[in-house]
Amino acid sequence: MDVELTVYLAGEIHSDWRDQIADGVDEFDLPVDLTGPVTDHDASDDCGIAILGTEENPFWKDHKGAKLNAMRTRTLIGEADLVVVRFGDKYKQWNAAFDAGYAAALGTPYIVMHPKEHTHALKEVDAEAMAVCETPEQVVAILRYITRGELTRPSPNLSIVR
């Protein structure tokens, strides 16, 4: 029997990792509904001033946008059965760490995906995760196992931590 999941894809927005997971979900026809943040960087940054009016002070511009994005994030993480949090190379993703913490506070299981060189910096985030991996392929293998009980052999970098 298939398990249906709503999975929130949190974190880094500068690469195609979400598309790779979506492609894998489609390839295996998994019963997974993927949700996530607005990934258009300009739209995410400017939503507050576009909707609520301009701000001369950059702090208030960011504040307005952060509040609107937080409403989306909190709603979708609250509705998720599972959260995948991706930490990329290009920027420090403080928002991703916050999303992982929010999922943990709600008791929503999460998977962390990041390169090996971030292991030490993310040790606390990793410690609360149900799995820590490096690739979208591994996330798809986890989703396939959770939803169908089908075991695949992803690359050997998967590390179950609990």
Rank of each mutant, 00 (worst) to 15 (best):
A131W: 07
T147C: 11
L151S: 07
E134K: 10
R144F: 02
L151E: 13
A141Y: 02
A127C: 12
M130K: 05
E124M: 08
Q138V: 08
I142F: 04
I146M: 03
P154W: 09
R144Y: 03
H120Y: 14
S155K: 14
H120R: 15
E124R: 15
S155A: 15
R144P: 03
L122R: 04
L151Y: 08
L143G: 02
E137W: 08
T147M: 03
V125Y: 10
A127V: 14
E128F: 10
I142M: 08
E134S: 04
M130R: 12
E128K: 12
L122Q: 06
T152M: 09
G149Y: 06
A141V: 01
A127W: 13
S155H: 14
A121E: 15
E137M: 05
E128C: 11
V125I: 13
V125S: 03
T152W: 08
I146D: 00
D126S: 15
G149A: 13
Q138C: 11
V140T: 12
T152H: 03
T147P: 02
M130V: 13
T152E: 09
D126I: 14
T152V: 07
V139R: 05
E124S: 14
T147F: 06
P154K: 04
T135D: 11
A121T: 14
A127D: 15
T147A: 06
E124P: 06
A131E: 05
A129R: 02
H120F: 11
P136F: 04
H120G: 15
E124Q: 15
E128Y: 09
M130N: 05
E134F: 03
R144T: 03
A141H: 03
P136K: 08
V139G: 00
G149D: 09
R144K: 13
A127F: 14
I146N: 01
L122S: 05
E137V: 05
L122E: 05
S155F: 11
A131R: 00
E134H: 07
L122D: 02
V140C: 04
A129I: 05
E150R: 09
K123M: 10
Q138F: 06
L122G: 03
E137K: 05
E124C: 14
E128P: 06
L122C: 10
R153M: 15
H120T: 15
E150K: 12
P136N: 08
L151H: 07
V140N: 00
A121K: 14
K123Q: 14
K123F: 15
Y145M: 10
I146W: 03
S155D: 13
E128L: 12
E150Q: 13
R153W: 15
R144E: 01
A121Q: 13
A131C: 07
I146Y: 00
L143S: 10
E134T: 06
L143A: 02
A131G: 01
R153S: 13
E150I: 10
L143N: 01
R144N: 07
A131H: 11
H120L: 15
I142A: 02
T135L: 08
T147G: 05
K123V: 15
Q138P: 01
A129N: 02
R148S: 06
